[in-house]
Amino acid sequence: MGQITLKAVRKSFGEVHVIPGVDLEIADGEFVVFVGPSGCGKSTLLRLIAGLEDTSAGQIMIDGKDATALPPARRGLAMVFQSYALYPHMTVRKNIAFPLKMAGLSEAEQAKKVDAAAAVLNLTAYLDRRPGQLSGGQRQRVAIGRAIVREPSAFLFDEPLSNLDAALRVTMRQEISELHQTLKTTMIYVTHDQVEAMTMADKIVVLNAGRIEQVGSPLDLYRAPDNLFVAGFIGSPKMNFIEGAEAARHKAHTIGIRPEHIGVGSGNWEGTVLLSEHLGSDSFIKVDVDGIGIINVRAGGELGIHHGNRIRLAPDADKIHRFDQAGKAIR
């Protein structure tokens, strides 16, 4: 079980209202990702759920029971920290066994569970080492091992991969996704990495200044962002926003079009290429469109377009997002 409900949860540090009020429903077994710009309160929200910070107001329910006042140790959740937070004076074996020891399991039971977790995470050869003698990826695995052994009702991850290099990040991302498929336990995962959010999540929660901007599946957020913030935040490269006459033509204050939804070669828009980046599989082109402004376009690979060329662009009419004065989507 791992069903978590936040009801009007608020958090202030002194005068600073970091979380002005959040309502959120997380179903059992769901993989939920919190995304948002730096300082928007992702970690704070996670730590409120963990019990590492006290809520200023509101209620946190875990599996239907009020956990608002419970200490972290009694919430039955496990957390993987960005810094790994391994116990430096203990061996890998002792690190992984620590939650079991706290739960009062016998030495034999501890050993059995530690060995099983180590086998799953490829750590068997390192059980007698100290954290200081491990690589970043191995430390990350130990941290995950320590989280999974005691079978928590939910896992909390705070940017667990941000200290790893790009290649390892991809591998670990897949390992965590596979782990979720095997364990089917609720996972709440904080990141500011687009790709992690889009690939791992069942449900993405987009946060901005401590408020939830939108909750939905990755494709929902991509296809139908509720507002300008979500539209600009989800998707890479970023959505183009156009105001003025062109927007008025679509009966909106602002219109948005993703770089990948603009055709190159023909069309109504004409402009000068300011920059073209050829990645092989893709080309990113920055165009100064007459009467509209700077537009980023993502086109196919091996395109013969260069700085200074005049080109025509055709935005896909079906993929234009319309927003009103307040930035809300017009549907």
């Binding site: 590492l52 200490p71 937070a85």
Partner: peptide
């Protein structure tokens, strides 16, 4: 002593004494 490590212990079920 990083505060994270003490918090990890709390998450792992340790009370103040442990």
């Amino acid at each position: 002593i990083p505060a994270d490590i003490l918090e990890a212990a709390r998450m792992d079920g340790a009370g103040l004494r442990e």
